[in-house]
Amino acid sequence: MAESLQDGQVLKVRDLEVKFYTYAGVVNAVSRISFEVYEGEVVALVGETGCGKTVTTRALTRLIEHPGRIENGSALFKRRNNEVVDLLKVPEEVIRDIRGNEIAYVFQDPTSALDPLYTVGTHIVETVTNHRKVKAKEVLRDAIRLLKEVVIPSPELRVKNYPHELSGGMRQRAVIATSLSNSPKLLIADEPTTNLDVTIQAQILELLKNLQAKYKMSLILITHNLGIVAEISDRVYIMYAGKIVEEALTTDLYYKPLHPYTQLLLRSVPNPLKRIEKLESIPGVVPSLINPPPGCRFYPRCPYATDVCRREEPSMIEVEPRHRVACWLYLKR
């Protein structure tokens, strides 16, 4: 293993590549992306729908299903016992034990994430007992505490409720409680508020932020909503068509967006604190991931595009400290 984790890093992903082998052709859903997550940090992963955010994070614990394949890359992860493992290479049983235990997920749609035939309590209990040898009774007590923690009223009753007996917001809280049940080191929240009412979105975000601090875990927050980003994240990765195009501290990103795509994104959100549902105001569409253009993937939509952008792919460079971008505008030739 050539690389190892630096101080304070929990996760270091290098050259991750995921492809889907469909009859139409090979979909390059994620193309050699690299990023890292530090302990106790909130990282936002931002991009339009279909740019590969979900696939990226699911690849971390090898949740990619047929016809998808993880082609390349490494994902070093520091486990609870401080052992560093490559998530993409460890045996199946180890990755199974890491899932839901050290790396937990909150999915986009709370309605479909919970099995309708099982109570909220059962979901929590099985998540714990499949990783640790404990009595179901004890876990049930713990489950009530967890539900209290995610601010579900009368948790003693709710723990016996079936998913359909809860409202959308409550369901997402229950999902979060389930994911927290093993106190994970890293929580991945995949657009946790997209399917919820606007009024509830803010509550859930605040909850996530509080819990992240309380549990001292790292949080990867996936969103296509830059408004959310400003509120809770420390650092941002901007994704476009299966690639990371910019990386910055949140404040830097708003202060001085470098990539033309980021600039357009921000312009379409006049006030970053005001939530906007879609980023559709940028003309053009995301290029097909089946045959991505050879040069810069943003080239067809970019107002500053030059000839070199079409021919050659820009590499990631550090323009300012902790602010990196992949764009020919910043590459001296």
Binding site: R99, G100, Y105, S112, L114, E126, T127, N130
Partner: peptide, 15 residues
């Protein structure tokens, strides 16, 4: 989705 979420929670095959 719930089966995928079950996998993401690290449940054992039998479960």
């Amino acid at each position: 989705e719930y089966v995928l979420f079950a996998k993401a929670r690290g449940l054992k095959k039998l479960r």
